[in-house]
Write a protein that binds this DNA or RNA. Structure first.
Lengths: 154, 154
DNA sequence: TTCAAAATCACCCTAAAGTATGACAGGGAA
DNA sequence: TTCCCTGTCATACTTTAGGGTGATTTTGAA
């Protein structure tokens, strides 16, 4: 960006100096009464050149920059767990089934889960079977792994 | 962007029409021998206006777009996992046992782990039993949970 | 109120997981 | 060389998990 600016300024300065030299040259020629007949055309040429430059300058100065948005991934440790409710309903997992899944992930056996939830072992078996069906897995370890991947459990 | 272009084109058209009208007007005036004395200045004005426009056009056409980069934060779970080797040796877990633990965490059954590692099912049972001993747990789900907590697996 | 989904429980059976014990080979350190 | 750890495998047994089926009760939405 800085180099670009410098280059632009250099161009402008060179441009101006060239014009100045040309102007002096013309003035000198005018003094010599040589090109008086062409004074009009030369003047017009000057005007053309100068105003072309003015136009360029105006355009560069006033044109709004064309913005390009670049999404840059910034790594952020987002450890806070947020349950993906959308996926939950999409899979058709009920509250109780999710509850069983969570306790599973904490390493509890079916018996322990049953005691934790004050229901029978058979009930937990039913729930876990449904969880496996809905998650399309065969084992509790797979269920845990998939549930973590799907943001159903932390 | 489209509207901007339309607006620009509209401006150009209006500009051109205005110039045309002005030109006709001047021609008419010239015909009337009124403004003959100012023909030079008017011509110069024309040139100035036209070449300003040319300059603007050139600049817009040829200038590279000024880009503005906008960094957008995208939350990424970048919890790059680093194995806690210290804890590993402290627990006395061998390489093979860790390997079995990792495959366990991916939801594989003992049979699948055995096939993955080209050893017998009994060998995996032995390994997993030792893992449970060293992690002081009773079940594989507990082992997975504890190993994750202890940064032994991702 | 009615009805479907959710939740509960039981029984039976198979598969998988886990425990206990013993054995053997290879590699590396004392 | 000896000895211990690791890795391997086997057998036998118990426990837990998982699948299938059927049944009853609760509950929430139409």
């Amino acid at each position: 960006m800085a180099t670009t600016h410098l280059a632009k300024y250099r161009s402008v300065i060179l441009y101006s100096m060239s014009l100045a030299v040309l102007l002096l040259l013309l003035k000198w020629l005018e003094w010599r009464f040589i090109i008086v007949d062409y004074a009009f055309e030369i003047y017009a040429g000057f005007v053309a050149v100068i105003f072309t430059g003015l136009g360029v300058w105006l355009a560069l100065k006033l044109s709004r920059p064309k913005t390009i948005t670049i999404e840059k991934e910034v790594l952020v440790n987002s450890n806070e767990f947020v349950l993906d409710e959308g996926r939950l309903t999409k899979l058709g997992l009920s509250r109780r089934e999710l509850e069983v899944l969570q306790l599973m992930a904490r390493g509890l056996s079916n018996q322990q889960i049953a005691e934790e939830l004050f229901v029978s072992l058979n009930t937990i078996k039913t729930h876990s079977s449904k969880v496996f069906e809905k998650l399309e897995v065969q084992r509790r370890t797979q269920a845990i792994e998939k549930a973590k991947r799907l943001s159903l459990i932390p």
